[in-house]
Simulated scan of single mutants.
Amino acid sequence: MTFKRLFWALKPCIDGFEHCIPVILIDGTHLYGPYLGVLLSATAVDGFSHLLPLAFSIVEAENVSSWGWFMDRLRKFVAGKRHGICGISDRHAGIMAAMKKSGWCEPHDHHRFCIRHLASNFCNAHKKKGLKKNLVELASQVQPKKFLLLWEQLVAAEPRATEWFEDKPLEKWSLAHDGGKRFGIMTTNHAESWNNAILEARNLPITSLVRALFEKLVDYFDARRVEIATQTLNGQIFTKVINMKLIQAI
Score class of each variant (00 low, 15 high):
1 M>G: 10
1 M>L: 09
1 M>K: 11
3 F>N: 08
5 R>Y: 09
8 W>H: 07
10 L>Q: 02
10 L>V: 08
11 K>T: 11
11 K>R: 12
15 D>G: 00
16 G>M: 04
17 F>S: 06
17 F>G: 05
17 F>I: 12
22 P>K: 13
23 V>N: 04
25 L>T: 01
26 I>F: 10
31 L>W: 07
32 Y>R: 12
33 G>T: 03
36 L>F: 12
36 L>T: 10
39 L>K: 08
39 L>H: 14
47 G>C: 04
51 L>W: 11
51 L>M: 13
53 P>C: 13
55 A>W: 02
59 V>Y: 06
62 E>D: 04
63 N>E: 05
63 N>G: 01
67 W>F: 08
68 G>M: 01
70 F>Q: 03
71 M>T: 06
76 K>R: 12
76 K>M: 10
76 K>Y: 07
77 F>N: 14
77 F>G: 02
82 R>N: 12
83 H>T: 14
84 G>P: 07
90 D>H: 05
92 H>W: 01
94 G>C: 03
95 I>D: 11
95 I>M: 14
97 A>P: 00
101 K>P: 00
105 C>V: 12
106 E>I: 09
110 H>V: 03
111 H>E: 01
115 I>V: 15
116 R>E: 00
116 R>I: 06
116 R>S: 05
117 H>Q: 13
118 L>V: 06
119 A>Y: 03
120 S>G: 02
122 F>Y: 08
122 F>M: 13
123 C>N: 09
123 C>P: 02
124 N>T: 06
125 A>D: 06
130 G>W: 05
133 K>Q: 10
139 A>R: 10
142 V>S: 12
145 K>N: 12
152 E>K: 15
154 L>D: 10
154 L>K: 00
155 V>C: 15
155 V>S: 07
155 V>P: 08
156 A>C: 10
156 A>Y: 09
157 A>V: 03
159 P>D: 14
162 T>Y: 01
162 T>Q: 14
167 D>T: 12
169 P>T: 08
172 K>V: 13
175 L>H: 09
178 D>N: 07
178 D>C: 11
181 K>W: 15
181 K>R: 15
185 I>N: 04
188 T>K: 12
191 A>K: 07
194 W>P: 00
195 N>M: 08
195 N>P: 04
196 N>Q: 10
196 N>M: 07
201 A>C: 07
206 I>A: 02
209 L>D: 06
209 L>M: 11
211 R>S: 11
213 L>R: 07
214 F>G: 00
216 K>Y: 14
217 L>Q: 12
218 V>D: 05
220 Y>P: 03
220 Y>V: 05
221 F>M: 04
222 D>H: 14
223 A>R: 13
228 I>Q: 05
229 A>I: 11
230 T>Q: 11
233 L>D: 08
236 Q>F: 05
239 T>E: 06
247 I>C: 03
247 I>G: 00
247 I>K: 10
